[in-house]
Every structure is written in C-alpha cells, then in structure tokens.
Amino acid sequence: MPTKPALTPPAVRPLALAGIVLAIAGAGFFATKGIVIKLALAEGIDSVTTLTWRMIVAVPIFVAVGIIYYRRQLTTAPTGTRTRLTLGSLLQVLGVGVLGYYVASFLDFQALEYITAQLDRLILLTYPFFVVLLGAIFFRRKITVQMVTALVLSYVGIALIFAHDLTIEGEDVLLGSLLVFGAALAYAVYQLLAKPLIDRMGPQLFTSIAMSGAGPAVIIHFLLTHPMSDLAVSGNGFALMLAIGTMSTVVPAYCISGAIGLIGPERTAIIGNISPLVTVALAIFILGEPFTIWHAAGTALVVFGVWLFTRKQKPKTKVLEEVTSA
C-alpha cells in the first residue's frame, strides 16, 4: 500500500511577508516622531517651528497623492463606487483635519518640551480609552469590564512613570502630561468625527484633504508667534525637519496603508502595538533618557492594558488612525 507523502507546512506567501515587513516598518517609523522632535529641541528648534516644517514637507506629498488617487478612481472605479466630493464633505474633512493635524499635533509637540518621549508616547497611546468614554457619553455605547480593566492597568502604568518623573523634573512633568492628555482627547474626538468620512472616501483621499486644512492653520499659527526667519534652519536642524515630514509622517502612513492592503487591518493593528516599545528603546539609546524599574513596570502595564483593550475590538479604526495619525 503506497504511503502518503509527508505534509509540509505551506510557505509564507511573498505578499504576506511583504505586508508584515511594511507593518513593522510603519510602526517603527511612526515611533520616531517624538525622538526627532526631541533632537530638534536640542538643536534650538522649538515645537511650533518643527510642526510647521512637518507641514511644509509632508502636505505637498499627501496632496499630490490625493489628487492622483481621486482622478484615478473617477476614471477606473465602477460607476456606483466612485467618490465625488461635495462642498459639504470637503468642509467637513478640512475642519476635522484642523482638529487632528493642528490641535492634537500642536499639543503633542508642545508636551515634548516638558516631558520625556517615553511618557509622551505612552500617554498618547491611551487615546482609544477617550474614544470609548466619549462614545458612551454621546452615543450610549456599552462599556465592558474588559475595557475598564484595561483602562485601570494603563493609567496605573502611566501614574508610576509620572510619579517617578515628577520627583525629578517637578512641575514641568505635570504641564507636559496635561498637554499630551489634551492631545489624546483632541485625537479621540478627531477619530470619532473622521471615521465616517474615512469609510466614505478612503484613507488616502481623506488624509490629503485633512492635511490641506491643517497646513494653513499651522502656518498661520507660526506667523502669528514667530518671525519668518525662524524657518531658516541649517545643518542637522534641516535634516531633522526633513525627517519629521518624511520619515516620521509620510513614510509610515504609506507603509501602513500598504500593509493593510496585503495582510488586512487586524494583523496590521497587532503588529502596530510595537510602536511604543520602539519609541522607548530609541529614547533610551538615542536621547539617553533614563529607564528605571518604574519605567519598565509602567511601560509594561500601559502596553498590556492597550493590548487587552484592543484584543477583541475591531481593529480597522485603530489602523486607520495610524495612517492618519497626529
């Protein structure tokens, strides 16, 4: 009687492997934002100038991609699925973009003038909890025991790091933490308002229009608070300005978009949870930030709490947020 050939595990499909690589790259590049801002501060470039340069570099790229995408889908997409912009939807996206890319980003960038990149990233990571709380208040969405447990774990972790840093840095830690909590709250409101618009027109077109609204708001803020000469940076400063617009903004956006297309939103979201760990590692080795037992315990609690929170949640929203992240 002939024997059956031994079964061998299927090889990882090249496209799936490419998707995993893109998801890891997107999470890693996204994690560099706080590091680049800190390095810019060390060069004497304040957070508003850095945010302005981010828009100067990134907005033209996003807008060009959005125009190409919109024209292509008008000509190639089936008639019933084509997205046609109206004045109303355009104004909505522009307004939401100001909230997510200007207000939330400004508060986050400002916070980094007062607190470590580690604490900033971990606090900002908890914005999904604000989404749930706002959903419960305004839309009567259900809050489960799992959500409450995840929230408590994450904020206990933040409290450990906050208490440790407060004893060393003093009131600056309190101010910086309040700023980044404000950024997280603004970003949560942004997500609630952005999701139906993203579902309607897709992340590429939404991001292009949203950035187009936030860009002028950021530049106006800069002109009202800074002389134009502050944009004149050179050497390391100029390299950092290019990095914040490309490596920390444009590159991760398209890496994550590509990953979603290749491996789906769920696997991309799970891989994306490495982002805060990358920030912590970079902050220690590049910025020389302290990492004590309190930081280790706090980081572990926050990451576990966020993982617990998203474990049985639909990850699509979370991934789209990374694509259009502040």
Rank of each mutant, 00 (worst) to 15 (best):
L41A: 13
I198W: 04
T149R: 04
I61A: 09
S89R: 14
P10T: 10
L151S: 04
G288Y: 01
A163R: 07
L185D: 05
W307L: 13
E289F: 00
R140I: 07
I256R: 06
T149I: 13
V180F: 04
G272I: 11
A243W: 00
V180M: 08
R13I: 10
A296Y: 02
A326Y: 13
I123C: 05
D108H: 02
L125H: 00
T116I: 08
G95M: 12
A159P: 00
W53V: 08
M241H: 02
V36L: 14
L277C: 03
A136W: 09
A58T: 05
A283Q: 01
D230P: 01
T207S: 09
M55S: 07
L287M: 01
R72H: 14
Q313H: 12
A77P: 03
A40L: 13
Q191D: 11
G215S: 14
L277R: 00
L240K: 01
H164D: 15
T149A: 15
F162Q: 09
M201V: 11
V93M: 11
S154F: 02
V12R: 06
V148Q: 06
A77V: 10
I68Q: 06
E289D: 04
T268F: 05
A188L: 06
G170Q: 06
A297I: 08
P216Q: 05
V251Q: 08
I35Q: 03
F62C: 04
V156S: 10
V59F: 12
F109V: 09
P252N: 11
V57Y: 03
A239V: 13
Q92A: 15
M55R: 00
V306T: 08
A23P: 07
P227C: 08
L122I: 08
Y69H: 10
V57W: 03
V57L: 11
G88D: 12
R82N: 07
T86N: 03
K314M: 11
A159G: 08
S47T: 14
K316L: 10
T52W: 00
P5D: 14
A40W: 00
P128W: 05
E169H: 12
V48L: 15
